[in-house]
Amino acid sequence: MSMLELHGVSRSFGGLAAVDNVTTTFEPGRIVGLIGPNGAGKTTLVNLITGVIPLSSGKVSFNGQSLNRIKPYHAAHLGMARTFQIVQPFNQMDVVDNVAAALLFSQGGHSPASARAAALPIIERVGLTPSAHKSAAALTLAMRKRLELAKAIAIRPKIVFLDEVNAGLNSAEIDQASRLIRELADEGITIVLIEHLMKVVMSICSRVIVLQQGRLIADGSPQDIARDPAVIEAYLGKKYLDKRHGQ
């Protein structure tokens, strides 16, 4: 059985379909790229799965359990983590408290003090130890992205949605993030990577799904996707495709 199943998932805003009849499944331990042009509905799809906004129609189930009326905090308890495209750290707290909060509220058995202690290895893992006691507001963008990742890891997720974690990072930072993402997948965590950088998608994803205008238009290995005419058309326009075929 798949871990996460979407069946006919749809959402419209004022008559406009943002996500339109998406059906797919996600298996444990894989890195799945979720790509598509701007406004294709990628972030909306994640918002629907994690309960930030309710579905217009369709079904989402996670390990056999229906998520249709779920709230985001409940999604976290079930083991779904996400990072935000525009990072949202708790600015008045230091890095330790940011991560400790994620530990404290996503699973039982912690006190604030024990959560702070347990946060340290996770901070080490994302390489933020030197800044552990800096306030989140004082971090650079790259560091804040790593903090988002640390908070997601702290939830002990079964699946993580990473919304543009690489945007605005330099290539060394991207390599670092990619390594960490692979490690997480090796531990059996499913990674859904919303990503604009094709280089990253091609190098670490084992499967790519493509959204266009809310609809799922392709699903397959990175190599297949790169050759898929529908995808090329979605990204580069029909003209480009015609020209290429004409050659």
Binding site: P72, Y73, Q92, A102, L104, I155
Partner: peptide, 24 residues
Amino acid sequence: RSKIGFALSCIRQAEGAAEMIGIN
């Protein structure tokens, strides 16, 4: 000082992110 205060402080600073780490 308690877990409740911790949660309230998270909610004040970024409510969406607070929900996402499991805060009701």
